[in-house]
Design a protein around this nucleic acid. Structure first.
Lengths: 367, 367
DNA sequence: ATGAAAGCGCTAACAT
DNA sequence: ATGTTAGCGCTTTCAT
């Protein structure tokens, strides 16, 4: 072992810092304390005197300091990586979904990984691979969160999964959703309030749990209003425009045709409008049409659709935040349990609903 | 100065590494070289012997190594922050846009900042603020890149701006786009090839430069085919469904009504289909309808639209990559100049086009 | 063509 | 309650 008795002359080395953004050290100097204390203040830890904390905070705002994300996650030892899975990305849903995720991810400095797939079956191996690659958690919009295998897999993997929307096996994973039952109930009640009695309903894809809930909400509102439910008026759809057309054709060919149709999503409602127009029914004067989701379609077509707005963006943002929270909790040894959170929806009234026409009322009354 | 003649007993300290992901040092050991050489290989730098490079690459794939992003940007000294501006986000456009950006950002480890705004006027102060906050560059989809003030501002700010789509003041900023003229030309030629002669055209929003180019493409194809252009057949729209309906009503009320209508985007084309259906025209047998963009609308409605597909996702990904490249070039003192890149489009043939019916041909021939 | 050393800005672990 | 030290994994700078 060679022991030097004279230190080598330390060469001056050009600093590598190009931008002059203040660092934690600058703040420490300004606040006359150590960088560590500044770090504690930044991270809201305890064990800092109020006075010191104040000085640090002042220094921070004086220097306009903001922590360097890269350094943070490097020193912190781990990075938050969140996988955004999506299959069947209805574009309008997807954009809201992505914007919400992106905003929150920026806030908490999470790294987003988008992963599109054609089906739940295809998603399975992808998810396994991502989990092995060290993904902190998955965000699952429908219909992925309606797939039992997907949910089982996340459990096997020990991965965090948060659904954006209702999903199978609730309780096994976190979720942010609206109350689909109540929303459909409200919409139906709104239509009843307009004076309609014969109200058609188009069910969504039977494999998604939201579909059943919306149907039940419709049924419950009818019952509450003392309206005899008629099986003729309830038609199966699959959330697609095409399925909406077929359903509308059935509904509008009925001897006593409905004066209103409530479709389980906007694409199907748009199809109802198209079919109605083709047989020269005016919307909303001859027939009221309501949708669900408030996707771009709802406000693109004419007349614009009365529909239910889900706060997709907010739901996704919260899902990202939740993964951050849960990951941190796990790291500190806790075992946080999955929580479902219900967010408020809005009934957006636009141009596609109205009171039933006199003629229609009479016809139904007479028939 | 105190000179120690004996090294202090170095305490063992628990490693802070929690995950066991391989590091550059692991690779170096495996490849029997220094971390520096590995770094060079990773970054595709020169001055590495082919043999060495091969060993390193083998080690990398053997260990399944992937570089730590945080460490990279920390050591690299600066972070790539890219602002995604959007105003009037047609949802289907937006989702493609975001997915493309997200994918590439993940690849080059850029931080994305989404910024939505209601208008170009509103965008101006936001952009100024972002630039002051140290944004590396802006990505501007239409109609923001059609606004002279926005472009001027980026210039004043000395910021990098990349348009996704054609924009005003070309040459002043980078852009990734398709050849709108040629695409419209091709589509028109396709319609002519089907046998149509009376072909209506609906112009897009006059404030977007794409609108003019598409119109010119239509005109050129007509001329090339020796078809006399008729002013009656060219109607102004604004890219919205509503404007498409108004235009379609005009076009379909013509004495000699067109046997085909080419709308400058899908929303307007969808409106044409709706109007046609209302007057019991079959699409495509009574009238051919074509769109542009291949947004979700095109494949949602029935019949699905024949349209032009722009590779939005790819365009945005390239825009992100370009900002990375330009930023790096600037840092090393170069002054890279803005480049426009034309990407290939596709004519997607679906169900909304057909040869003109005999009746229609005769009528037009007779009239 | 390759490597050693010195940080990048921050935090975990260990003092005090 | 606060400070010290030693990294996190990588790249830059400088030396060979």
């Amino acid at each position: 072992m060679s022991i030097r008795t004279t230190s080598p002359a330390p060469r001056k080395r050009a600093s590598r810092r190009s931008n002059t953004a203040p660092t934690i050290a600058d703040v420490a100097r300004e606040a006359q304390c150590s960088p560590m204390t500044v770090s504690r203040v930044i991270n809201g830890e305890g064990n800092v005197r109020e006075e010191t904390r104040g000085q640090v905070q002042q220094a921070i705002s004086k220097l306009n300091y903001s922590p360097n994300r890269a350094a943070r996650s490097l020193a912190g030892g781990e990075q938050l990586r969140i996988a955004l899975m999506f299959d069947n990305p209805s574009a309008s849903y997807l954009s809201e979904f992505l914007v919400g995720a992106l905003e929150e991810a920026g806030r908490i400095d999470a790294h987003l990984e988008v992963q599109s797939c054609e089906s739940a079956t295809e998603a399975l191996p992808l998810m396994r691979k991502l989990a092995e690659g060290g993904i902190s958690g998955f965000i699952l919009p429908p219909p992925l969160c309606d797939d039992q295998r997907v949910l089982d897999l996340t459990k096997d993997l020990g991965a965090i999964a948060i659904a954006v929307g209702p999903g199978k096996a609730e309780g096994s994973h976190g979720a942010f959703m609206i109350d689909d039952f109540q929303a459909a109930y409200d919409m139906t009640q709104h239509i009843i309030g307009l004076g309609h009695v014969r109200i058609g309903f188009i069910i969504g894809n039977p494999e998604q749990v939201a579909s059943g809930r919306r149907l039940n909400g419709y049924r419950a509102a009818l019952e509450k209003a003392g309206i005899e439910p008629s099986d003729d008026l309830i038609v199966q759809g699959r959330f697609t425009y095409r399925s909406g057309m077929a359903a509308a054709e059935k509904l509008l060919a009925l001897d006593q045709r409905p004066t209103a149709i409530f479709a389980s999503n906007d694409d199907m409602a748009a199809a109802v409008v198209a079919v109605a127009h083709r047989i020269h029914l005016d919307v909303p004067n001859d027939i009221t049409v309501c949708g669900f989701d408030d996707t771009a379609m709802a406000s693109t077509i004419w007349p614009e659709l009365t529909t239910i707005r889900q706060p997709i963006r907010e739901m996704t943002a919260k899902a990202v935040a939740a993964i951050g929270r849960i990951t941190r909790a796990r790291r500190s040894g806790e075992k946080p349990k999955a929580e479902q959170t219900i967010l408020p929806y809005t009934l957006v009234r636009r141009e596609s609903d109205a009171a039933p026409s006199l003629a229609a009322s009479k016809r139904n009354g007479a028939g």
